Computed example of a mutant assay.
Amino acid sequence: MREAVASAETVLLPGGLTVRVPAVPALALLKLLTWWERRTVTTRDAVDLATMISWYSTGSYLDLLYEEELDLLARHDYDPALAGAWRLGSQLPGLLDETGKHALLPIVEDDDVLGRLANDAGGARAPELMRAMGAGIRHAIGS
């Protein structure tokens, strides 16, 4: 939670009201860790995480992939969904200290756990998207 608050962005709402909201990578990190803790009782966190992953291949995130991340797109056969999932994953460890980074490894280094996450997330592409996100996390950690 501390990391989510630290990375919060200010958003202007209608009527001039400003609020601070966590950045998407911080929300995704919270959802991934919450899923890990509650995976035996609910799939909600995995479904929410899948939604956040989908954001990373649409709108301004899609523009960014084509404007600044062509090498990443090429590595994923120009599939923006996979490149976006990898990119989001690669941003999660940067929010954590070393202890936090290593807390992610049991989730993303185990194919069975990633399979369970994908199953809980639902959707035809969930397995490959979760693997891509996991690969981005592992790359950023250096494992």
Rank of each mutant, 00 (worst) to 15 (best):
W86V: 03
K31F: 06
D120K: 09
R138F: 06
M1Q: 09
A81Q: 07
L65F: 06
L104A: 13
L96A: 08
S54T: 02
D111R: 15
G84S: 11
A8H: 01
G94Q: 06
T99I: 12
A50H: 09
A135W: 11
A85H: 08
I53F: 05
L17F: 00
L114Y: 05
E68N: 05
L27Q: 12
P25N: 08
D63L: 13
D79K: 11
I141V: 15
V24C: 00
A46G: 07
L27D: 02
L13N: 01
D45F: 11
P14N: 05
K31A: 10
L64V: 00
E67I: 03
D120F: 07
L88V: 04
L33A: 11
K101E: 14
A4V: 02
A140W: 02
L117G: 08
L73D: 02
L30H: 07
V47D: 01
L96M: 09
S90G: 10
G100S: 12
M52E: 09
S60M: 08
P80M: 06
A26R: 06
A132F: 08
V41C: 03
Q91H: 14
G122E: 07
Y66I: 00
E109Q: 15
A83P: 02
G115K: 08
R20K: 15
T51K: 13
V5H: 09
W35G: 05
L129I: 07
E67K: 14
L95G: 06
N119V: 00
T43V: 05
S90P: 01
A103P: 00
V21R: 15
D111K: 13
D97N: 15
G134K: 03
P80E: 03
V24Y: 02
V5Q: 12
L72N: 07
L32D: 01
E98F: 08
P127S: 10
H102L: 13
I141K: 04
A46N: 07
A23S: 15
P106T: 08
G59Y: 07
R75S: 15
A4N: 02
L65W: 05
L33Y: 04
G94P: 01
G123D: 10
P127R: 09
A118S: 10
D63E: 12
E3L: 04
H139Y: 15
E9I: 12
E68M: 06
A4D: 04
V47F: 01
D71Y: 08
V41P: 00
Y78H: 11
L13T: 00
A85L: 10
A4P: 01
V21F: 04
A26C: 05
R125E: 14
L32S: 02
S60V: 14
G94I: 06
A124I: 11
P93A: 12
A46E: 07
D97T: 07
L12H: 01
H76G: 05
A28P: 01
L73M: 09
L104K: 11
